[in-house]
Design a protein around this nucleic acid. Structure first.
Length: 275
DNA sequence: AACCCTCTCAACCGCCCAGCG
DNA sequence: CCGCTGGGCGGTTGAGAGGGT
């Protein structure tokens, strides 16, 4: 896309990933696990820089990624967390099992940021203002969004805690939220078994029984290489049994707002979300 | 049908931090 | 303490899709 070569490596491939590259990357990570991104491409036989491999894996190929529509609940949570945390997408993503920071960031920039522009309180981000013009897209995200029609209450402007680096990215950590962080949970919670996860590439499929994702299209192409049951799962935390965790967090947040105890408490609340 | 314009999102960049020797 | 390296994060870009004219 017209930029200087990543990582100063000339001769490396850039741009969209091919199915073959994806397959190589998944296959390698299956066998060797994540990490050592810099040396991974060479060992996996990829002409990509390590960062590119990491990004592709983290944002697209990981088996525990939840593709498809952002649900109204998720959207609401994104708005709330953004009002608390600002543009700390990885932290927000950490509260949304199966969602990536990139996905949330994109969603914010394309949907929520635009919507909140009409709100009295501007969002924290400093993005350029998206166009107001409406547009429909037939991408797999056309969930009728109730909040799209009636704007949510303006998020209160809150103190932004200092950035904190969270090393165990994305889907970790506490069970404050509904931890449907596996395919099985995601799908079964919606009463759908053997459902194709909505993804542009339609590769990950939930078999509905052991909740294992596998690369369906790839399997057609190369049965032996990508076998879903071999894909390492990243179930980090036992699923919470409380489906109302979103609301609990929000209620807790509202309580703090009501107490007028100022930024200190809000900050500590925000910090508590950073576990 | 053809062109233009807008929107979406995968991919990239640059910077920063943590860990290690 | 310092420098190096690997890894992670937030901001930005631009190709492609699709609606509008």
């Amino acid at each position: 896309m017209g930029r200087a070569p990543c990582c100063s490596k000339v001769g490396l491939r850039r741009g969209p990933w091919t199915a073959r590259e994806d397959r190589l990357l998944v296959s390698y990570i299956q066998g060797h696990g994540e990490g050592h991104w810099r040396s991974l491409p060479k060992r996996a036989g990829l002409l990509r820089c390590g960062k590119s491999c990491r990004l592709r894996w983290m944002n697209y190929l990981r088996p525990d990624i939840k593709r498809g529509n952002i649900t109204p609940d998720e959207e609401d949570l994104i708005i709330r967390l953004h009002s608390l945390l600002g543009n700390r997408w990885s932290l927000i993503a950490g509260r949304l099992p199966g969602r990536t920071d990139n996905e949330i960031k994109n969603y914010w920039n394309t949907h929520l940021g635009k919507r909140l522009l009409t709100q009295p309180t501007p969002p924290h981000n400093t993005r350029k203002k998206p166009s107001q013009k409406k547009r429909k897209k037939s991408k797999p995200n056309p969930t009728p969004d109730p909040a799209e029609e009636e704007a949510p209450p303006a998020p209160p402007k809150l103190h932004i805690p200092k950035p904190i680096r969270v090393t165990s990215l994305s889907l970790p950590t506490n069970d404050s939220f509904d931890q449907c962080n596996t395919f099985s949970t995601v799908c079964s919670s919606q009463g759908k078994d053997a459902e194709v996860i909505q993804a542009p590439w339609s590769r990950y499929v939930n078999d509905g029984e052991n909740g294992t994702g596998f690369l369906s299209a790839y399997d057609n192409e190369d049965q032996g290489l990508v076998n879903g049951s071999d894909v390492e799962r990243h179930s980090r935390v036992p699923a919470s049994e409380d489906d109302n965790d979103f609301d609990k967090i929000y209620e807790e947040y509202l309580q703090i707002l009501k107490t007028n105890e100022g930024e200190a408490q809000l900050e500590s609340f925000a910090e508590s979300l950073l576990i």
